[in-house]
Amino acid sequence: MKLKLAAAMLAASLPLASMAFAQGTAPADLAMIDACLKTAEKTGGFGGACVGLVADPCIKAAKGANDDVAKWKACAARELAIWTQKTSEALKKVQAGGFTDVIQAVNDSQKTFAASRDRFCAVFDKIEPGMYPGDASYCRLRETANHSLSLIKLGAAVNEH
């Protein structure tokens, strides 16, 4: 129940992502991220190189003489939906580990994560769009992805034995 609440709180805090998440993620986009994460797992990596695999080429394609910030934001939202899904999956895996103190710490963190991320990322809507393509949307993507990667590692660790 607590896990469902945490996942619902996360999804509700991501307006663009929750809309994309509700529609589902593109299978090709998800497969690209999954393949990268699998490679990172095999090599003992963290998976940071997997962040931006969907959004960055999409943003690059939308750049040009008529840079369209709305398209950049849509590109970021597209990948954010994947990392939102990955976060939900990782939360379930952490829960399955059964370590009460770990579960409590993660649940407590989830209660404040989205609000903290959104307060921080809002500043990117106030800077020149070319400095951080996708503005706050891209920031939410990166912050969520990094949070998800940590949860993925934690889920693996608490289910090791």
Rank of each mutant, 00 (worst) to 15 (best):
4 K>F: 14
5 L>G: 04
6 A>E: 04
9 M>T: 11
16 L>G: 15
17 A>L: 08
18 S>H: 09
21 F>I: 00
21 F>R: 01
27 P>H: 01
30 L>K: 14
31 A>E: 10
31 A>F: 05
35 A>I: 09
35 A>K: 14
35 A>D: 13
35 A>E: 12
41 E>Q: 13
46 F>Q: 08
47 G>L: 00
48 G>V: 05
50 C>H: 06
52 G>I: 01
52 G>D: 00
53 L>C: 06
53 L>D: 02
54 V>Y: 00
55 A>D: 08
58 C>I: 07
58 C>N: 07
59 I>G: 00
64 G>V: 12
66 N>I: 09
69 V>M: 10
69 V>K: 08
70 A>Y: 08
71 K>R: 15
71 K>C: 01
74 A>G: 11
74 A>M: 15
76 A>I: 04
77 A>C: 09
81 A>S: 15
84 T>M: 14
84 T>L: 14
86 K>M: 09
90 A>E: 03
90 A>W: 00
91 L>G: 09
95 Q>A: 13
99 F>E: 15
99 F>G: 04
101 D>Y: 10
110 Q>E: 14
112 T>C: 04
113 F>T: 03
113 F>W: 02
118 D>T: 02
120 F>W: 11
128 E>N: 14
135 D>G: 10
136 A>F: 03
137 S>G: 12
139 C>T: 06
143 E>G: 02
145 A>P: 03
148 S>K: 01
149 L>V: 09
150 S>N: 14
151 L>Y: 03
152 I>T: 03
154 L>P: 05
154 L>W: 01
155 G>A: 08
161 H>C: 10
